[in-house]
Design a protein around this nucleic acid. Structure first.
Lengths: 259, 259
DNA sequence: ATGCATTTGTTCGTATGTATG
DNA sequence: GCATACATACGAACAAATGCA
């Protein structure tokens, strides 16, 4: 069989320029898609044609179309999700960790609108890991807030916040009546606190976490554990955060920049 | 070492009273096992009681014991192998990120012996992401070192190091004749440098990465991107690091540990 | 819960055009 | 002309993840 018909041009002349210099098909497909993206015809997060559709419209094998998509994914312009499709990469949220890390300030610093949804709010007994984080004996009463954080309405984190109940009477009520953790703490007599320690690891999400964060179950979540202290160095909060990759990445900057 | 003040956990299977503190049984079992592990009574890699044995000693249904094991596995403390049993996970290395982060110092700080294996060493043309990290035009010559880092002979990271070739003549040779990146840089006239920025995300490893790091393909790797600068603030290195979870976790401490 | 359709990911094998010596 | 190597491209089959009815 002839794989290259000598007398006809199989390409759609209306969409693509004439073959100028024998460029490989997969490069030309990649260039065409890249041009569409940079021209803004395909918006961040938007869906690209499937591999099969691309192959059909360019009259090439699916391998060839795939190679073009692979190239764009390698350069970071496109995100390919197995079983779902290919998408124009959406820009990532940089979660800058510093001594005064606050959710709403973080999101606003990226020109997005923060919001939140309380998933659970209760006073419970501290299990071993929470007790270790807060530096209290196991079984002690702690106020627990589980919260979904959103930026422009899209989920960007699940946070568990643990506070020593004895230290903050009325905190349960304050948290229930405020959108902001820091505002509730202020109302309970803690105007300021700072991040003393952040640990980061990663794991696969369970089904509910994947659903809440709107990611596939095969995409890792970054897990942070952090300890917040008051001005005397006493622990006031132990927190666990789950962040969907690659939508969110964590940034440590020893020196504070602006931008 | 633990970052948090160790709490004494009095739980012991044989002397468990009836639910003194309203904690769910599976949580108490998990806590008891976690305590045994953190106290060092169960050593990393060691075998845990089987699900049935746990159920018997705690007088609960096997499902309950299993839930406790699941919880510990989910948090990465134990590893469950179908048909073989449950094991204490290999202990974690805390990768402390600071302005003067060096591989060998990091590993030695955890009382382990650092070593390394050069996987690749070459001068190449910078692609888009490397060029962006180094702040040079794409296509510029960069020295690339790919290296497997080990602690006590066990793999703990894969690192890609990129250096602007023009700035460091002889670096390729120096890297080839030294175990240490910082020693090679010193030999090329850069006695000191510091970490200006660290970005962290996570993804699943490919087959080769999983093999090199000796982890399963379903375990995420932490991915760090970092930029090192000299005393004038000029970029001297762009690095990418892959760390196996949960064997390694990243720790960021803005200030010295509170006493 | 189960099966099915869609889509991406991988691996066989095969064939053609180009560059090199 | 010939041998070789390489990049490109096609075909088929299968595996794996996802979404939906």
């Amino acid at each position: 069989m002839d794989h290259f018909a000598p007398t006809i041009d199989p390409l759609e002349a209306s969409v693509l320029p004439d073959r100028p210099d024998g460029l490989a098909m997969w490069r030309r497909i990649a260039d065409a898609l890249r041009a569409e993206i940079t021209r803004g015809e395909l918006i961040p997060g938007g869906r690209l044609p499937t591999g099969a559709a691309l192959a059909a419209s360019f009259r090439v094998n699916r391998h060839t179309a795939r190679r073009a998509l692979d190239e764009l994914a390698r350069s970071g312009l496109v995100r390919i999700e197995r079983g779902r499709g290919s998408f124009v990469a959406d820009d990532v949220l940089d979660y800058a960790v510093g001594p005064r890390t606050r959710f709403s300030e973080w999101v606003r610093a990226q020109n997005r609108e923060p919001s939140g949804r309380v998933l659970e709010l209760a006073t419970i007994a501290a299990d071993a890991s929470v007790a270790a984080g807060l530096g209290v004996p196991t079984g002690v009463d702690v106020v627990m807030l589980k919260r979904l954080g959103l930026a422009d309405g899209r989920p960007v984190c699940i946070g568990w916040h643990y506070f020593p109940a004895a230290r903050f009477p009325g905190l349960l009520y304050a948290l229930g009546n405020s959108d902001s953790v820091s505002a509730a703490l202020t109302a309970c007599g803690l105007p300021d606190y700072r991040r003393a320690l952040t640990r980061v690891t990663a794991r696969l999400p369970d089904a509910e976490e994947a659903r809440l964060l709107a990611i596939g179950g095969q995409r890792p979540v970054l897990v942070t554990e952090n300890v917040n202290v008051d001005s005397d160095g006493a622990i006031v909060e132990f927190g666990i955060g789950l962040y969907p990759t690659p939508r969110v990445q964590i940034v440590f900057e020893p020196v504070a920049p602006t931008g």
